[in-house]
Amino acid sequence: TEVDLHLGDITIKLKDVSEEIVKRAKELFKNGWSAEFVKKWIEEAVK
Rank of each mutant, 00 (worst) to 15 (best):
E20V: 09
D4F: 11
D9I: 10
G32I: 01
I10S: 05
E2M: 13
V22I: 14
W33Y: 14
K30A: 15
N31F: 13
K26H: 12
S18I: 07
E19A: 11
K40C: 09
L7K: 01
E44Y: 15
I12H: 03
K40P: 00
A45W: 11
I21K: 01
K23F: 15
F29Y: 14
K40T: 11
A35S: 07
I21Y: 04
K23S: 12
V3W: 08
K47G: 11
N31A: 14
K47S: 12
L7E: 02
I21H: 03
E2Y: 14
T1P: 10
E36C: 15
L28T: 00
K39R: 15
L14Y: 05
F29A: 02
W41P: 00
W41L: 02
V3A: 10
L14W: 05
A45F: 09
I12S: 03
E2T: 14
E19C: 07
K13I: 11
K15M: 12
S18D: 12
L5G: 02
K39Q: 12
K26Q: 13
F37C: 07
V38S: 00
E19T: 10
K30S: 11
L7A: 02
E20S: 10
E44Q: 10
D9M: 11
I10M: 13
E27S: 07
V38C: 05
S18N: 12
K30E: 11
K39T: 10
V17H: 03
G32W: 03
A45N: 09
S18T: 07
K30R: 15
K47Y: 07
K13G: 06
S34G: 07
D9P: 10
T11W: 05
L14R: 01
E27T: 08
A25M: 03
W33D: 03
S34C: 05
W41I: 01
E44I: 10
K26T: 11
E27L: 14
T11N: 05
T1A: 10
E27Y: 13
S34M: 05
K13C: 11
L28H: 04
K26G: 06
R24Q: 13
K13Y: 10
E2H: 10
T1Q: 13
F29I: 06
K30G: 09
E36D: 09
I42D: 00
D9R: 09
A25Q: 00
A45S: 07
I12L: 14
E43R: 05
L5Q: 02
V3N: 07
K30M: 14
K39A: 13
L7V: 04
